[in-house]
Amino acid sequence: MALDFSRWHIAELLPHAGDMILLTAVEHCDDDRIVVTAVPHAGTILVDEHGVLPAWIGIEYMAQAIACFAGVHERARGAAPKVGFLLGTRSYDSKVAVFALDKPLWISAQKQYQESNGLGAFLCRIEDETGLLVEASINVFEPPELETYLSGQQS
């Protein structure tokens, strides 16, 4: 079932702030999948001094798409977005070395599983108008109680 995400600005859906918000908008979100957009520009935090955005930065776009997925679901329940952790990726398959600047990217994250203990995995894709650029399986962890987890006192 599609969720109504239109009432929130992207900054209200992510536990990020300022220049670290790389996403532009949510295009679609339902119980298992999200599609977001990003338009990388020169001068932003992850573009290097030569004006290049390496494709390995795509993992951060994917992680933010997953965080946005969680944020939409939290907001729909009347709660604030929670902090989560990127645990890693398997088979980060990039068809490009760099992302083009000033061109929209569509980042999708399809939930593969999400356990009650906070562990999850998502199949993510980054596409542009030419097609698939990057695909990866991303493993994440959202602790049920962040403060308890950070203090090392979880049971």
Rank of each mutant, 00 (worst) to 15 (best):
A2W: 04
L3E: 02
D4A: 12
S6R: 14
W8P: 02
A11G: 10
A11Y: 12
E12C: 05
E12K: 00
E12N: 05
H16F: 11
G18R: 13
I21C: 02
I21V: 13
L23H: 07
L23T: 03
V26L: 09
V26I: 11
E27W: 01
H28V: 07
C29G: 09
D30A: 04
D30V: 01
D32T: 14
I34N: 08
T37C: 12
T37Q: 13
T37L: 09
A38Q: 03
A42K: 08
G43A: 04
I45R: 06
L46I: 10
L46V: 09
H50M: 03
H50A: 12
H50R: 12
H50Y: 09
G51K: 07
G51T: 07
L53N: 04
P54Y: 01
P54I: 10
A55K: 07
I57M: 12
G58D: 05
I59D: 00
I59C: 05
A67N: 02
C68D: 09
C68W: 02
F69I: 02
A70F: 06
A70V: 10
V72R: 06
H73P: 09
R75V: 03
R75S: 01
R75I: 01
A76K: 00
A76L: 06
G78K: 03
A80K: 09
A80N: 10
P81Q: 08
P81M: 04
P81Y: 07
V83M: 15
L87I: 09
G88W: 06
G88F: 10
R90F: 05
R90Y: 07
Y92Q: 04
D93H: 14
V98P: 00
L101V: 00
D102A: 11
A109C: 08
K111H: 02
K111R: 15
K111G: 04
Y113M: 11
Q114I: 07
S116E: 15
N117E: 15
N117H: 14
N117Q: 15
N117W: 11
G118F: 04
G118H: 08
L119Y: 12
F122L: 08
I126D: 06
I126M: 09
I126H: 07
E127I: 06
E127H: 10
D128G: 08
D128N: 13
D128Q: 06
E129Y: 03
G131V: 11
L133D: 06
V134P: 05
A136D: 04
S137Y: 03
S137V: 14
I138W: 01
I138K: 03
F141N: 01
E142C: 12
L146W: 10
E147I: 12
E147D: 15
T148G: 12
Y149P: 00
Y149E: 02
L150D: 10
S151D: 13
S151F: 03
G152A: 10
Q153E: 14
S155N: 14
